[in-house]
Design a binder for these strands. Structure first.
Lengths: 256, 256
DNA sequence: TGGCCACATTGACCTGGGTCAACGGTGGGC
DNA sequence: GCCCACCGTTGACCCAGGTCAATGTGGCCA
């Protein structure tokens, strides 16, 4: 199977299976048995022994949500933590008057619920049909209590998340619209590269509105600037994504 | 001693002692013996037994830096973690062209180095004469390895930090200049309240430029809007701070 | 197969906040 | 006690990006 991503999308779109036998394994280009997948999906394998992996796997259940469905909602009690195995998710906060700030996008391999807090800090909607491993927060927490090395790994992931949030603060506070778009495209490329290896084609499962709400811009500005970058041959706009032509230029615009 | 803050400032300004015998204990209005202080300053007391506290205290050394001095620098290897005991610190990232984004301000009781990463994610300058407990990162890390409950506390602090960073993303991405100023003042008031209990006087150890670089605004805009809020009787500008008059109005502007 | 709706694009115009410039206060150094 | 660098404030003007409006376009369902 040369393009796992495409096949997963179609498979999920076709049926949204609730208990898949096969599913995408992040950081790999092949489909594998689900039990193994869950484990690798956790991005925690390095920290666990085989028997611990199995133990953790027994705690997991597989869930699937269709495009535009809600995974969880801001301020609601958070009962679960998730590890995304396929698809894409929008994470956002709403202001009372309806203004929206997207705080991030989750892709296959990403972990939701690092904070282990009582209530969700943001809402999460699937952008495309999505599957994830779901753990009861309580069971997961108990498992962590018995595995300090796993907690350490979790803490390091949260730290990385914090670092990304601070980079985003720089983008939102001090960069021009064009620089924001470039930083977004380069950042997303780097994440997809770790998932599917492709260095040029960048899938954009989110709408222009989502990108705007992530970058602190309006839809119109996002659209205009993407068009301009395309006119200037820095990118090519293709259905559901972009193709990066002039990566050095984008990196120059994006550099922190 | 009715105002610990004032006296600490003066004491530090007078001499910047390198090994103080007495120092401010956060969440308390009195000066106490330094050993006890360090421990309480860690904000970790709830998680530790008395003998563990003593063990941790032995790892700590006390440092003092004068106003405008550097604690550590972005991208440099990070050798230490800190717990601020008195003073105030500006945490910021620089773009190559000199644009600056302040990612936060550290006040007494705050912990620097939650991420335990190899290199500093940002630079840190003292705004006022500042004292802190300093731990070798290595020793601290070893101590954590032996105390999983402490790691858990650290992780929960990092999660809280992440949540604050996401709130700041909303402020930078989706709020007007006036709302940003109000959110900043209310947020800072709440932090000082936990330190010195005062619900109205908000010390501002940072310059207007620092506030602007935190909120994604220019000095001029910060100055103009503070003047306007003062003209409209929402605040009073006093030396080194503001006094909040119309807290409900500010909270309405700031609400998330 | 046509109608609908959500998304994307584009143009014309407007404005919040940035830029530039001037000036006053003040506190630290000599 | 004087100087000067830094900070804060204010005014005049400008522009990047927002707002509003119109049009295009593709997918989906009846």
């Amino acid at each position: 199977m040369k393009s796992s991503l495409g096949s997963i999308r179609n498979e999920a779109a076709a049926g949204v299976p609730t208990a898949p036998v096969l599913t995408l394994c992040p950081n790999s280009n092949v489909t594998v048995d689900c039990a193994t997948c869950r484990v690798r999906a956790l991005s925690l394998c390095a920290a666990l022994e085989p028997d611990e992996l199995q133990e953790l796997d027994r705690l997991a259940s597989s869930i699937a949500v269709g495009a535009k469905e809600r995974l969880f909602e801001q301020d609601q009690p958070s009962a679960s933590v998730y590890n995304v195995t396929a698809g894409s998710i929008r994470l956002y906060k709403l202001l009372p008057d309806g203004r929206r700030q997207v705080v991030g996008f989750a892709l296959p391999g990403d972990f939701l619920g690092l904070s282990m807090s009582e209530r969700n800090a943001f809402s999460a909607d699937a952008l495309t049909p999505t599957t994830a491993c779901k753990f009861s927060r309580q069971e997961y927490s108990n498992f962590l209590d018995a595995k300090p090395h796993l907690l350490r790994r979790l803490h390091s992931m949260a730290s990385h998340e914090l670092s990304l949030a601070q980079d985003q603060m720089v983008i939102l506070g001090r960069r021009t619209a064009e620089e924001r778009i470039a930083a977004f495209l380069i950042g997303l490329r780097n994440r997809w590269m770790r998932i599917n290896g492709n260095q040029v084609h960048v899938p954009l499962p989110m709408t222009r509105q989502d990108i705007g709400d992530f970058l602190g811009l309006t839809v119109e500005t996002v659209s205009r600037l993407m068009t301009r970058l395309a006119r200037e041959k820095a990118i090519v706009i293709v259905p559901d994504g972009v193709r990066l032509l002039d990566v050095p230029r984008l990196e120059r615009l994006a550099e922190i």
